[in-house]
């Protein structure tokens, strides 16, 4: 069974994502660091089933504490896994930092711009089409607590593939 890792900064809604995708009931809270260990669940896709792993939040792949260590170790152990990188759309820069690190290690990534409603409230505008064409991976705006965008995330899973970071750098260069 194909594995999916849910990764992202702390406190972006990975566990809410996990519960929604799997129907499980892991503890969610509104402060960072709730998930220090991992949870596993299963999801039915449209053509295949997936095992989903809820990974503790991490800012980067250079671990600074126990929870981050768990996150990095899990990523390294699951070489063939897909990654859904959940980022807080209102704090996009630090989210993209992690997303790029994961892409750099060769994992196929689906980028979920979660808390889309919060970003809208803060008047943050994100050009999704441009982000998609630069990164060349599926980018989906989501609101985990209401379920917006989940169908698209699941459908995107089979469209993603690993991307070379230097190609992304080249495409960013073209924009300037």
């Amino acid at each position: 069974m194909k594995k999916i890792l849910l990764m992202g900064n702390p406190n972006v809604g990975k566990s809410v994502f996990f519960n929604r995708l799997t129907g499980a009931n892991v503890i969610e809270s509104n402060y960072p660091g709730t998930t220090v260990d991992y949870a596993k669940g299963y999801m039915k896709g449209d053509s295949e089933d997936f095992e989903i792993i809820d990974v503790p939040g991490t800012f980067s792949l250079e671990s600074k504490d126990k929870a981050e260590e768990v996150a990095v170790k899990m990523l390294e152990e699951e070489k063939g896994a897909l990654v859904i990188c959940v980022i807080d759309a209102s704090k996009i820069e630090r989210g993209l930092y992690l997303a790029l690190e994961i892409i750099e290690r060769g994992y196929p990534v689906v980028l979920a711009l979660n808390m889309w409603d919060v970003a809208e409230d803060k008047n943050i505008q994100i050009d999704i089409e441009k982000l998609k064409s630069i990164l060349n991976i599926p980018v989906v705006p989501t609101i985990a607590i209401s379920g917006k965008g989940f169908k698209e995330v699941v459908l995107s899973l089979k469209k993603t593939a690993s991307v070379r970071v230097n190609e992304i750098t080249e495409r960013v260069g073209e924009i300037k």
Binding site: N9, F59, S60, E62, K64, E93, Y97, L98
Partner: peptide
């Protein structure tokens, strides 16, 4: 540098 870059 890399440590804090992840925090923006």
């Amino acid at each position: 540098k890399n440590k804090v870059a992840g925090m923006g």
